[in-house]
Nucleic acid binder design. Structure first.
Lengths: 339, 339
DNA sequence: TACCTTTGCTTAATCGTTTAAACAAAGATA
DNA sequence: TATCTTTGTTTAAACGATTAAGCAAAGGTA
């Protein structure tokens, strides 16, 4: 904030010889202010290059019109697209967003929440870090009485609005696609079971396998942190099995890429020898060779719906309306790695 | 902001039967408040779960402790790392950041600036959109008297602090590396000349070629928007030359990837037939086959230095100190595509 | 004893905007 | 003419924290 150029409503009032209150009302199109005054006020405001002091109005109204957003990492196509469409909706409604990154760290997530609450945001939209198990910091948000909306990485126990995709069903799509291609031993490199979305993918995988009368082999279900390197490790491990899988469904694209690298290095023909499917539809999946089949998570819809859910909450804060749980169906994009 | 849990310094004052002013001072460790009172105040603050109202203090002090950040897209490894290290430094100094994306659009950039000024940020740190030519919106920031720091995508005409890498010199590194490998016809798929950093890379390329007594062939210098698709197009075009290049230096990794795809599809041996170097060191450059040589832009240093430059500016706002232009030397990372 | 300093607090104004309440003037109603 | 409504404005009190100025009590100095 600067010392110069600090035109206030008082300055406008002085020019027109009316009260500051009248100016404020004129600028907000109050019905009790005459058209003549409104026009004059707006003209002077323009001339003096008036910019309302957001802090003052936020303080007075008890609303900052700021929404805090917490994502594990902006450096991912999914999250950056979600944020983009979220921003569009919220900006239109007069809200601005503050983006913070947790870097998948529980500690950083706590700090982010403190920061956002300190900044007096009107609400928080978050996707949880992998590390997060303890939820007390999220309870803190709830206890402040401001809306909390989760997307993608949510948690049932928290009992708050949630927008995400149907992970359970996505696993069915993938497994059935692979079976249709003739695969009989489908492995799953999944995320940690304690993270709900990954647990859902694992459950979906198991149920889909059973539903299609294939045997469940526990060796073929491996938990991973889904980084590229861990994808490599887990894939390498599987190649040592005496009974190799003929397909691998990896719950994250980076880990899928790691797996693909190992397969390529071992001269294994993808898709003919082993088929591969990733998750998340990161841009690189269509850039490498072979291109990797993956699941599109509809980031734009998720962003838009999350924002709309937030707006709904702030517009009727008292109403203890039923929880919004919006679950979208994801879309399997078949590419060369499983054709 | 909520109606409940709104503990204020007045509440603390009431409990202890002292004035609100004393509470404020105690919380700020004012030397004129006794240790006994300070301890008591802090204890009560903790008990009542007191959180200072940032808006009120910002209004009063004329400082929001918010820094606005504008980047073309958070969805890039470079920008997301810059932001991360910037945030670390700024948080330590008591500042929080508001991240906005311009999506390379001039119009969106203008809107972002309006939003940030409206939010009363104490300063703006920006990297310009590709589209931006007109600079009046940046002048607006300067005229408000708040610090403006540019990084990576800057502009000399604006006359503000800048942190970036030595693009001119980076081109020398690349060209000389390729010449050392025996290349004689080195092409350059560059960005638009009107963007300073790309212009510098082109100038560096030309001067390095000349310096090494190789001929300049204008056909080998091609402007591009550096998207993956355009990289493909420009590479395909070059393959039709009767006199093909034996190396291609692409000013962006995504376009370099596009070029590589075309080379692979045409069964051209990279690096033996044509060597390839990209720019930006995006993670995928080391993920694909062959891995792509690229330039590391020291995102962490850039973020840190940008933040430090900002802090320097806000701490001595009056001093019309000389402009900070920090230019780091980039680092060429040689990978398979040019080995 | 008389005066000066230091310590530890209080009072009151302030940041710029919003808004409930008051009020004057004009117009409508009976 | 007397009373009620409507219109268009002003007054003044907030929002919560900060801070210059003031002041009383305690301690120090000569």
């Amino acid at each position: 904030m600067s010392k110069k150029n600090k035109t206030t409503i008082k300055d406008i009032a002085n020019v027109l010889n009316i009260s500051a209150a009248a100016v404020s009302k004129a600028l907000h199109n109050d019905s009790r202010i005459s058209e003549k005054t409104k026009k004059a006020v707006k003209q002077v405001a323009k001339n003096l290059n008036y910019q309302p002091n957001h802090l003052a109005s936020a303080l007075r109204r008890g609303k900052s019109n700021l929404v805090g957003v917490i994502v594990p990492k902006t450096n991912s196509n999914f999250f950056s697209s979600v944020i983009e469409s979220m921003e569009t909706v919220l900006n239109k409604a007069g809200y601005n967003i503050i983006i913070t990154q947790s870097n998948e760290s529980f500690e950083k997530e706590c700090k982010n929440i403190d920061t956002l609450l300190f900044t007096q945001v009107d609400g928080i939209i978050a996707s949880m870090a992998n590390e997060t198990v303890d939820l007390s910091h999220y309870e803190k948000i709830k206890s402040k009485g401001i809306p909390l909306i989760l997307f993608d990485r949510g948690e049932n126990d928290l009992n708050v609005d949630y927008v995400g995709i149907n992970d359970y069903h996505s696993s069915h799509l993938i497994v059935e696609h692979l079976i249709a291609k003739g695969c009989k031993r489908i492995a799953h490199i999944g995320g940690y079971r304690r993270t709900r979305i990954f647990n859902n993918r694992i459950r979906g995988y198991i149920d889909a396998i059973k539903k299609n009368n294939l045997p469940i082999d526990d060796n073929l279900i491996i938990e991973s942190d889904l980084t590229l390197n861990d994808g490599r490790k887990k894939m390498a491990k599987m190649l040592n099995f005496e009974n190799r899988p003929d397909a691998v469904y990896v719950a994250g694209d980076y880990a899928a890429l790691g797996a693909l690298q190992v397969l390529n290095e071992n001269n294994i023909d993808v898709p003919n020898e082993i088929r591969l499917v990733g998750f998340g539809n990161e841009p690189f999946t269509s850039l490498i060779s072979p291109t990797i089949s993956s699941v599109n998570q509809h980031s734009n819809d998720i962003g838009r719906l999350t924002a709309e859910t937030f707006l709904e909450r702030v517009s009727n804060p008292e109403i203890k309306q039923t929880l919004n749980k919006i679950i979208l169906d994801a879309e399997l994009i078949v590419r060369d790695s499983s054709k």
